[in-house]
């Protein structure tokens, strides 16, 4: 398959990239790892006249950890994220989720920024970032602004990012020391998008849950932050009745499509199972 024609640009600074986005207007698209965009271009579902490759913008490539504050540059690849021992030590959830994305070749080029910015409800990192309470940094011609991950997704492929903005970094506070987390993904085969997936972060003290956050992947038009389900867990000993209530609260906010991954009812059912198992796994990992 041959994509439509375009002019190729490879700016070496963020300023230059923002400048190109402004001057070229809506005919330009950014390419990070390209593993969402290039398949769309091959199908001619995307046909930009200009492609702006961000690979030389060094400022987008760093993983910065300062105390508990984490900033992931948008051009950090999934493979680099998996390889960061420092990051995995304070937030193992990211590596666990990343290892369930696609395959080694794709993780070598696919970036964290592309995964969260694309707006594909099948992508795994948006729900993970919502669960972590992350904030996205956006830079445009008028400067920088922040948007919370939970406010970023408007509908499938529609996000709060303006056409002339670049998502430059993802920032979050690492979960408390001793927290337990899990990302569980039901899929048809290795590397597939989720039939349903759940991210869970728990804090437990004296046998009781003191904080909880739950996110859901691919069971709606956008990633979902299951705030009610999380609230149900807090203060409980994570007994079966409470977990069952949280499962039902999570299922209640889903609205998956019926597709090759199963009918809507099945995917909603699986979402609850993923929540239940991820809670149990996160609980077993909490200290």
């Amino acid at each position: 398959m041959i994509p439509g024609s375009f002019e190729y640009h490879r700016p070496s600074s963020l300023d230059d990239a923002v400048g190109l986005m402004s001057s070229l207007g809506e005919d330009a698209l950014l390419v990070a790892g390209g593993h969402s965009l290039i398949p769309m271009m091959k199908l001619r579902m995307a046909a930009p006249e200009h492609l702006i490759d961000l690979q030389d913008v060094q400022s987008l490539k760093s993983i910065s950890i300062d105390g508990g504050k984490v900033a992931l540059g948008a051009m950090v690849t999934q493979a680099e994220l998996i390889a960061s021992e420092e990051l995995c030590a304070i937030c193992p959830l990211l590596k666990e989720a990343s290892l369930q994305i696609a395959d080694p070749q794709i993780r070598n080029l696919g970036t964290i920024g592309g995964n969260v910015a694309n707006g594909d409800p099948g992508n795994d990192m948006p729900a993970v970032m919502q669960t972590l309470g992350a904030t996205y940094m956006l830079t445009g011609p008028d400067g920088e602004r922040e948007v919370a991950a939970k406010d970023f997704y408007e509908a499938a492929y529609f996000t709060a990012r303006e056409d002339n903005e670049i998502l430059t970094a993802i920032c979050f506070d690492a979960p408390a020391k001793g927290h337990g987390s899990a990302y569980l993904k039901q899929k048809r085969k290795i590397g597939d998008y989720a039939t349903a997936a759940a991210a869970v972060v728990l804090e437990i003290s004296g046998g009781n849950c003191t904080a909880a956050s739950i996110g859901l992947t691919n069971v709606g038009d956008t990633p979902l932050l299951a705030e009610e389900a999380s609230a149900i867990l807090v203060g409980s000993s994570l007994d079966d009745d409470t977990v069952k209530k949280a499962m039902e609260a999570a299922r209640a906010i889903t609205d998956p499509a019926s597709d090759g991954r199963g009918p809507k009812e099945f995917r909603t059912h699986i979402a609850g199972i993923m929540v239940q198992r991820a809670i149990a796994l996160a609980q077993s990992r909490a200290k």
Binding site: G34, I38, L51, L109
Partner: peptide
């Protein structure tokens, strides 16, 4: 699959300019 700067990549999903 080819090796690009020491990483396995799928060359059907890389533009020559990249």
């Amino acid at each position: 699959t080819v090796d690009m700067d020491g990483l396995s990549v799928k060359s059907c999903t890389v533009f020559v300019g990249q």
